[in-house]
């Protein structure tokens, strides 16, 4: 396992090219091309903003501007969920590579996660534009921790993506199960609502076992709730960082154990 992990470093050039190809190929042939990377999050945000400020009006004064609050949680979630959805099918859709070319299979789910991370970064640019437009200034003391949250999410997502990709080869049901599970997971995580709202206090136990809870709250505290992260969720996030390393190792180990079965089962 450790030697395989080491060879993975050798394949960074391949991973980089495949991520670039993924991004190029996705919008090839569309008129707006790469702008979709910006337009998609804007459209998504507009829909959510309309629903939650016009139809289900949100009056909590702490969550204003609401669209900004929601965007802080929605962007990382989109990265997370699309990564898992794509990674789960990545070995199957890349079957011609696995069966015909000597190819390190773990590259495929990792590319899914990284390509979506690039989209996440584009989304951050939009978010930054919103901050500027609304003249909303996050706290700099919190903001320095932002890369750490991204890193924790990357490690956690990659670990899960590897495990899911490996298992989906043998249990195709996972792909269908996963999309439903992710919908449930989305609503179980404080993204469109805040974790401290009185109405969700009965579900605190659910937050505690929800890994993404720590990420979404960290993002919200760093970007939206000014000056609350360092004395708030930071400690929990660091703990979760250790857990996510464990998740990564477990996911990679599972993937490595099942590696030899891929060429025949995909």
């Amino acid at each position: 396992m450790w030697t395989n992990l080491a060879t993975l470093v050798r394949y960074r050039g391949l991973i980089r090219s495949l991520v670039a190809r993924e991004l190029k190929a996705r919008y090839r042939g569309s008129i707006l091309g790469f702008f979709w990377s910006f337009i998609n999050p804007i459209l998504l945000l507009s829909i959510y903003t309309f629903v939650f400020t016009e139809i289900l009006e949100n009056r909590d004064p702490d969550l204003q501007p609401y669209s900004l609050f929601m965007f802080c949680g929605l962007l990382p979630w989109t990265w997370f969920s699309s990564s898992l959805n794509e990674a789960a099918g990545s070995l199957i859709s890349g079957s011609n590579l696995i069966r015909k070319v000597l190819f390190p299979a773990e590259v495929l789910p990792i590319v899914s996660v990284l390509a979506n991370m690039v989209h996440f970064f584009f989304g951050l640019l939009i978010l930054a534009a919103f901050f500027v437009g609304l003249q909303y200034r996050p706290d700099w003391h919190d903001l320095v921790w932002f890369p750490l949250v991204v890193l924790v999410q990357l490690v956690f997502t990659t670990g899960l993506a590897l495990a899911l990709a490996a298992l989906t080869v043998h249990f195709r049901d996972i792909r269908d199960l996963l999309s439903n599970l992710l919908t449930f997971w989305f609503f179980a995580t404080p993204i469109i609502y805040a974790y401290y709202m009185p109405s969700v206090q009965g579900y605190r136990w659910l937050f505690n076992v929800n890994p993404f809870f720590h990420l979404s709250v960290s993002y919200q505290e760093i970007l939206f709730f000014r000056g609350s992260f360092v004395h708030g969720h930071l400690k929990l996030l660091l703990e979760f960082g250790l857990v996510s390393i464990g998740v990564f190792i477990a996911g990679y180990w599972l993937f490595d154990r099942l590696r030899d079965s891929f060429a025949e089962a995909v």
Binding site: R21, K24, G29, N96, L97, R99, K100, V101, F103
Partner: peptide, 12 residues
């Protein structure tokens, strides 16, 4: 040289 162009992506 088993499957030629196995890794080609049609769109690029």
């Amino acid at each position: 040289l088993i499957e030629l162009g196995a890794g080609f992506h049609p769109e690029i």
